[in-house]
Amino acid sequence: MLNYILKRILMLIPVLIGVSIIVFLIMRVFSPDPAPIVLGQHATQLATEAWRQANGLNDPVYLQYFNFITGALTGDLGTSYYTKMPVSKEIFARFPATIELALVAIVLASFFGILIGVISAVKKNSIFDNIGMLIALIGVSMPIFWLGILLIILFSGTLHWLPSNGRIDPMLQPVAVTGFYMIDSLIAGDMDAFTDTLQHLVLPATALAMYSMAIITRMTRSSMLDTLQQDYIRTARAKGISEGRVIRKHALRNGLIPIVTVIGLLLGSLLGGAVLTETVFSWPGIGAYTVTCILKSDFPVVQGVVLLIATIFVMVNLIVDVIYAFLDPRIKYSKVKG
């Protein structure tokens, strides 16, 4: 087991180097010149050339890559062309917002997904099951940004129930300790700030959660259906144990194993969904910021963000695989696959 984990960690290194090369090529070789946007409407060709020279963009690409990778290894990701702030600062100022949103979304998705999935399986083919499955189907089919806009129109624009943008009322903003406002407001003991944070989270988290919830619902349902047909469930029923107890004590426990895996994997992919959700809700996170930076050709930022997201993604995958191996003794990882 330990060997397997070590081997997997070692395998991450070439993957991350590869990722950095891919993003470097896309940005530095194929993307448009950042100079005009950095220098604004007075960007003459002369000024543009001087700026490119000063920022090493006239160097050969391999040299630029070498400079980038040596910097990255020492923790220096460079400086944003546009704001002239260190990239690491730009990223970490926005990162907690995305993680907070993604975590709340996955919690929502898991809770409702498992709930609906279990009920659907237990009451198979009932009206509840049919409605649940319909919602799940629509959930995976709706563009996330469309859902987001519809939510804003309904709950903010028309009913005025919930805020439409941002993470918190700026007047209530807690002192940043962790960057997670739910935690920071609790540290500060400010319940108003905490509630306000939750209110701001409701709409974007719902939009982001919808897709994952639909997947979890369907997985739970089919996994539970499988489990309910197993011999030991029949035995339990035959022993006269109440149906509720059978489901809670026996079926749910075993049925949940594959769900845990799916939830872990969805967490990684939520980072992708965050790109669109953040754009719609003006959420100050890393996803929308990255899109802006791609369009501005802010190379250092894009390189930094992609490297960071890739690291997180492969780490999450690794952890999920380990948990899975841990939960399911049938899986042996003597041979590394993939």
Binding site: V15, L16, I22, V275, T290, I294, V306, I309, F313
Partner: peptide, 9 residues
């Protein structure tokens, strides 16, 4: 490597 970057990005 390609899977490690969110596909939409």
């Amino acid at each position: 490597m390609m899977l490690a970057i969110p596909s939409i990005l």
